[in-house]
Design a protein around this nucleic acid. Structure first.
Lengths: 206, 206
DNA sequence: CGAAAAAGTCAACATGCGTTGACATTCTGA
DNA sequence: TCAGAATGTCAACGCATGTTGACTTTTTCG
């Protein structure tokens, strides 16, 4: 009967992952600690480079707990990396400053308090993990593309969105991952002044 | 004495790596086969994702041979990834078309015959391998930055070079690694028409 | 030819990985 | 209080990795 007990536990754990939390049972503390450690590790080393065992050591907790809480490394990754770009309503963006607004928004997102969660993690992971690149594509389709479409009347809004993304990802890549000196050292304002017009150009040129 | 024999062999092998090849001893064929397989694996899976054993299996050859020829996985990587951007002399580039020329040059480099060798490999590897990002920085400093400096009179040529690189890397990332649909599917001409002006802007704006 | 050098093979090593199931402890509510 | 649920620990599994040293086969050349 021990096996069926384990299965019930597993099932409960899967349920608890999606339930809305009102109280904070002891487990929730651990859950959050695991997520925080996982985000840090995934951010610093990418999906493959981060190991369940090292994440567990950082919490600290037994690796087996991670499997219990999240089912697998993939499950942990999915739970740890939740992307909400919080893009504003296109209607609320003044069109003549949309480019700089865009860049400022992303810099703020990437360098704000919760910066460990999000695109830089995906960027580091996507080169070796299919799930991560799928997630990036999903973010592009569901969050970036619609917003850009709301900002331009052009019929090639998707292409324009992709070009904007390519510039923003290139920025993130050079600044946070490669740490290419000039890009890594520029102030936010300098970046906004330089990249803003590029984004604006992608939106409006032609 | 067997150990000292092995060491002598190793020393010969290190010498042979740097010698100019006039004849083609049997070993050179194997060497090239290993390099070709390594480039492919590094390109497809990045430094960490590629394994010495799988490269060896692809040749096919015994993994120990790779150690003999290249000393270590790092040594193989260094030998396999040699970056020469072949950037033209700045003086030969018409300044009003420098942007499109730049983009066309890189697309040609990345999608030409020897495309497996080069930046896309580094890009995939750099997220998890320090050597790879160091190499990228070296390429930036020794090849891109000087060329850009020769194209502009501005005193912030380094910053401009970095911004150009961030756009080009973003393009490569989205097109070859993330395979983000709109970017991955655009024709070379479309990309040149869209990104060229951005590069031109980084060179000349202000 | 025949010896020495080169090229290639094989088995093993230590390590780290994701994951598992049995077990021990702690907490909670009837 | 005390059963049962929740939480946490431990040891082990099978596997893949980079690397090594002893070995055998093939090539080269006096």
């Amino acid at each position: 009967m021990t096996e069926s007990l384990a299965k019930v536990n597993r099932r409960w754990q899967i349920l608890s992952m999606s339930r809305t939390l009102t109280k904070t049972p002891k487990s929730e503390t651990t859950r959050q600690a695991i997520l925080a450690a996982a985000q840090r590790q995934f951010y610093e080393n990418g999906y493959d480079g981060a190991s369940v065992r090292r994440i567990a050591r950082a919490v600290p907790i037994d690796p087996a707990m991670i499997m219990r809480y999240f089912g697998s490394k993939e499950g942990l990754f999915s739970a740890a990396v939740v992307i909400d770009l919080k893009l504003p309503d296109p209607g609320a963006i003044p069109r003549d400053r949309a480019g700089t607004a865009f860049v400022a928004h992303f810099l703020n997102l990437w360098e704000g308090e919760r910066s460990a969660i999000g695109l830089p993690i995906l960027l580091r992971s996507a080169v070796s993990n299919q799930d991560a690149s799928d997630k990036i594509r999903a973010v592009f389709e569901k969050q970036v593309a619609p917003t850009v479409a709301g900002l331009t009347d052009a019929d090639d809004a998707d292409t324009r969105a992709a070009l904007i993304v390519s510039q923003l990802f290139g920025l993130a890549l050079c600044r946070y991952i490669l740490k290419l000196p000039p890009v890594a050292e520029m102030t936010q304002d300098e970046i906004i002044a330089r990249i803003g017009p590029v984004v604006q150009g992608h939106l409006w040129r032609d």
